[in-house]
């Protein structure tokens, strides 16, 4: 089975984040594998353990991504492709185009990705990629079963479970709860440095700049407002409701 995993390196959202000149400051930031992608890597390794085959990690981003990729290789992925040519960077539209160009050059049965990246949180790249490749996708899985050509995906549906079936080739995205990612073994870490990591450029992929030009522009980046102290409404129920509606209308302006 040829298993591909799309992987992004993100900053750790559990650490302190500083925004400077409209950008997240990268100095002294801790970078990690996007947690949703880590579930995808783990699921890919489980598929490989069950069905045999190879796991290839595919990534678009700067060379610092190498650390996250090496971690995935240490967990057990077999090889990796990193598009670290700045000419290939852009928005979700661009990344999906670039990933599609890489993936079209190779055989695959299943593509796994995170449901979203914790930094941008757009949740677009993976599903756009499926569209580019013209294959079905099942998103935000909490359980995945592959039997022969049959793929069954389980998704959380507001307390219920939605079961979706598809046939290979397919793209699926991972939701929290899909699995418990393993620690890379220390021998794995040592072997990771010897596993193949191919760097690709715009020229390698035959992509022209206009074709992958970003279609969106980030206008501003800012941190959420610090949480204000809450307000406890006083008086009898009638009064409290009146005050709440009043406040929602005039102070928070969330209802008309």
């Amino acid at each position: 089975m040829n298993i591909l995993v799309c992987l992004k390196q993100t900053f750790d959202t559990e650490e302190r984040i500083v925004v400077e000149n409209g950008r997240v400051k990268e100095d002294g930031v801790k970078f990690i594998i996007n947690p949703y992608d880590e579930y995808a890597v783990e699921e890919a390794l489980r598929l490989k353990e069950e069905h045999g085959g190879e796991v290839t990690v595919v990534s678009v981003g700067p060379s610092r991504f190498e650390e996250a990729i090496r971690t995935a290789l240490a967990m057990g992925a077999d090889e990796a492709i990193l598009a670290d040519d700045p000419a290939l960077f852009g928005d979700e539209y661009t990344v999906a185009k670039v990933l599609a160009a890489i993936i079209r050059q190779r055989p695959f049965d299943i593509i796994l990705a995170g449901n979203q990246a914790v930094d941008d949180g757009s949740g677009q790249v993976a599903v756009r990629l499926a569209e580019e490749l013209g294959i079905p996708h099942i998103s935000t899985l909490t359980k995945l079963v592959v039997e022969g050509n049959q793929v069954t995906g389980y998704r959380d549906a507001e307390g219920d479970v939605e079961v979706v079936q598809a046939t290979l080739p397919v793209l699926v995205t991972a939701q929290q709860g899909l699995n418990e990612p393993r620690y890379p073994s220390l021998i794995g870490i040592r072997k990771a440095s010897k596993k193949p990591l191919t760097h690709v450029t715009a020229a390698d992929l035959g992509l022209n700049p206009e074709e992958i030009r970003p279609r969106t522009k980030v206008v501003d980046t800012f941190l959420p407002k610090p949480k204000q102290a809450g307000k406890i409404l006083q008086g009898d129920l009638q009064e409290q409701v009146r005050e709440l509606v009043q406040s929602l209308r005039t102070v928070d302006k969330v209802i008309g």
Partner: peptide, 15 residues
């Protein structure tokens, strides 16, 4: 080295 940092980070996470 990258390998030394990865070992440290993995052990830290484990610990």
């Amino acid at each position: 080295t990258l390998e030394q940092r990865m070992i440290r980070d993995t052990v830290r996470e484990f610990a």
